[in-house]
Design a protein around this nucleic acid. Sequence first.
DNA 1: TAAAAATACTCCATAGGTATTTTAT
DNA 2: ATAAAATACCTATGGAGTATTTTTA
Lengths: 317, 317
Amino acid sequence: MFTLRHLGYLVALSDTLSFRRAAERCHVSQPTLSVQIRELEAHLGIQLFERTRRRVTLTPLGREIAERARGVLRASQDIMDLARSASRPLAGPLRLGVIATLGPYLLPYVLSAFREAHPDLRLYVREDPARRLVDRLREGELDLAMVDMPVDIEGLEGLSLFREPLWLAVPRGHPLDGQRRLTHSSLRGLELLMLEDGHCLRTAVLKLCDGMGAREHTGFQATSLDTLRQMVASRIGPTILPALYVAAEAADDDQISTIAFADPQPERQVVLLWRPQSARKDEFREFAAFILARLPAHVTAENHPLENHPIPGQRPP
Amino acid sequence: MFTLRHLGYLVALSDTLSFRRAAERCHVSQPTLSVQIRELEAHLGIQLFERTRRRVTLTPLGREIAERARGVLRASQDIMDLARSASRPLAGPLRLGVIATLGPYLLPYVLSAFREAHPDLRLYVREDPARRLVDRLREGELDLAMVDMPVDIEGLEGLSLFREPLWLAVPRGHPLDGQRRLTHSSLRGLELLMLEDGHCLRTAVLKLCDGMGAREHTGFQATSLDTLRQMVASRIGPTILPALYVAAEAADDDQISTIAFADPQPERQVVLLWRPQSARKDEFREFAAFILARLPAHVTAENHPLENHPIPGQRPP
DNA sequence: TAAAAATACTCCATAGGTATTTTAT
DNA sequence: ATAAAATACCTATGGAGTATTTTTA
């Protein structure tokens, strides 16, 4: 029988396709890794890699086995996590992924207090588009992901956290400036500045436009909410900003005005996701409770399991 | 990090709750296993077992981790199987489970020829009720199960093989003896001898009774089809027998008559099941094709994946 | 010739064994 | 007193290292 170590080498080599770099990643010497891979191939009685003239490539069978090896290592890591989580809850590394349009404006409210409450916790936060975050979560590279819906959460589990209103941002002096509440038809004909493709928020805003008769401002696409705000301040046009961003960054900007919509407000739903096999669900739920207890104004807390939440495209594997 | 060997010891000890027997099962000495379990506990930083006064018991956390360890070992075994299956297809051990009312009457047609075609295959056949077979399949103790529906196949995958007609068996001279085809109402008021609880066939026959106005013969429950046939021969009453049993065992019995039903014939559906993670699906499909090519008369071949087959209660995990 | 993988060898950590002690019924 | 687990100690396998050779672009 092979060992978990063999599987680790296999995965490292299948990732890097270089004995040298795989050995580095595993913190062993290149000959060690060479020998162990050869030994694994001998044990299994099959060829996993083709080493041909300066090129290392996976055989189809090697690819399949490397994929399964990843699963075995992930499950082993889960066992370690479960043990550590039981002996010292909320200690050790916790890898949290969050979308870029939310993290910097929500987490400051929460993380410093959370770290204080759990000093042994080492919290790694990573920003990425929602789709990539859930992929990384499935791969086991993340423990936890905070994303906005809709996103394909097949094979994942989680909680709905809150709904964040979307507000209109216009330059000072804009015809809509001064309105207390926007109605369904206030946006008709407006050209809205938007984020570039890949952001979930863009999708949400496009849907909003559709319903309210507005359209995308062609020719400009922003890469961040800050850019978007500066474009509004430069009087290029109005845009839609999420409430937490406005509260954190744009509330005292005297060049733009932000206006809420009348009910039913457009909003985006923010959820917290983890793998169902994860060993640290209790910790994740505590983290969720921590967030919910410290939610800034303007957002509407929710707190129900995602299993029972009707999300199109959700289906167990 | 622990090793797969540690996990094997953990699973063995959690199964036996005795260091001595667990060591035996692992083919190591008792001190070796003692030391390794202690080491695993030290590595994980938690207590897995309570050793108290002649009693070894799992802690709750130990139970959870042992369960996960089983999964890791199963996945590792799958990798081994995949490799062996690729290098020498249809070689090595193949553990097949089959229900008792089918195995002895179908497999003789198939197995000797299958063994001849694949001499390196070591085929272990085990008989059990369908429910236990699918449980063993999920545990990884079986590679393949041949059962009749309905059975809960959640989390499993497979093929529908064939539909086997159910025939009425009556003592010679019974009023129904001599009829060519039974109609829907032929059985009205009849008291049918049945198998004891737990057999899928019993369930199928009960459903049949319901539809045809017959009832169960109270006071007698047989434990095998052979017993059932002898009871019919002893003129205790009529019964329902599956066609393959009749063809194999009861065709030349001059004390009983077997009579088929008019269309739509009552029948039971026989399926072949495996774990979706199994490494040997190709071999299983070949086995299925082998069976289908050698099906005895009277049964109706089917051959479609079970995923698309509407079976109540089927739901992915 | 330079860079990468394979080979040769040496060493040591550790899993495994046997013998023995401890503990609990 | 007996049976089971723990401890002590020794052995040997194999995983890891360094040094070197082979291979190919």
